[in-house]
Design a protein around this nucleic acid. Structure first.
Lengths: 200, 200
DNA sequence: AAACCGATTGACTGGTCAGTCAGCCAGCGA
DNA sequence: TCGCTGGCTGACTGACCAGTCAATCGGTTT
């Protein structure tokens, strides 16, 4: 038997368990013991791989958020229209939720929207996303593709806020979350922001 | 001396102290002792007026939120244009923040955006606001003032999400919060949503 | 002046957890 | 076969804090 069983990645196993438990109970009401149980691992092992309960959440957030930042910045580098760029950003976020709703729920509920606790810690990273979106808008304005009388920062916040609110709606079942809804959301947010509600 | 000193409203005194402390430290990291200290009152008195620490926050939220609901519904009843209605709603929320930023910070950070904890409890009230906004949009569509191909619920969530994100930006000093910014925000959010970003 | 009563006080309790640590065990090299 | 190493275990501890309650206070009624 030349092949040895691949060593179990305990760290990953604990992170995955944490996603499930955090998504189910929220960060504050999950005990470290819950994570260990869910991972099928001893209590102490969590502390072998992580400095603290906080570090587990920080790790989950930072890993995923850096993907988002990369995606936005890469999108921006491509030579498409500003509108197409916004559509790509909205699409990336919506798809992230479609692919891994539990992780996105944790990130949004426990970090992004928890500006008092973990959001504070990660403000610089979060702000980078706002800034990148604002840059797309500003470039669009400079190129004449967008009207110039609205502060790009305002647009960036509104745009991101709108998407996050939709995700929150799905997460907490305020609005239906079918595959069709996901597809619609991407274009509808962009249509609203770019074309406006009033008929042309 | 016919006039007797007006009896101190301890309940109010404790609520006001709670706003300050919750705004400063966040709900989870304020001890009941902090509220009592801030109010200049004995620890036990908080429990004389409130069943629990949670009840203090619930009270703060419900009192303020019902004002918002009333304002939205009254706005809707007036015979103005759908666009003017949206502008009034945005204006009311922004003005609430301008007048009492600490209370609005608490409401948004600890309830509205804390969908896992207090947001859950107050979901029905929060949802009523979304519904009222959606109704304004739907009526606007029926009257031909708004394009009909976007789900009013989506618009409602996007609209509210955009405003809340701006408030969050002010609260956490991600974007500047001058009086001029407040005035701009109201019309810019509505301009974005109604007219769109792209030039006409 | 004595009984009464609601407001007010703050020491205390019971329960909860995050994080520690002393030791166990499986595999490996000597 | 015998350490040795490091992943792994889970009982334990120390800190923290919401909520309780018995006692006190100040005003009012009888």
């Amino acid at each position: 038997m030349a092949s040895k069983a691949p060593p179990i990645d305990r760290r990953r196993q604990i992170l995955d368990a944490a996603i499930r438990v955090f998504a189910r109970q929220g960060f504050h009401s999950t005990r470290v013991a819950d994570i260990a149980d869910e991972a099928g691992v001893a209590y102490g092992l969590v502390y072998h791989y992580f400095k603290s309960k906080d570090e587990v959440l920080n790790e989950l957030f930072s890993a995923r958020w850096s993907l988002l930042l990369t995606a936005i910045e890469e999108t921006d580098r491509e030579g498409t229209s500003p509108r197409a760029k916004l559509e790509a950003v909205a699409g990336f976020i919506v798809d992230s939720y479609r692919r891994d709703p539990e992780l996105m729920k944790v990130i949004i509920v426990e970090v992004t929207r928890a500006a008092n606790s973990f959001g504070r810690t990660h403000l610089p990273e979060i702000r980078r996303a706002y800034d990148s979106i604002a840059k797309i808008v500003a470039d669009g304005q400079a190129a004449g593709a967008f009207r110039g009388d609205i502060d790009p920062t305002f647009v960036s916040m509104s745009f991101y806020g709108a998407i996050e609110q939709l995700l929150s709606g799905w997460i907490f079942e305020v609005i239906p979350a079918s595959d069709a809804d996901f597809d619609q959301a991407r274009s509808l947010v962009v249509a609203t922001i770019c074309d406006g509600l009033e008929p042309r």
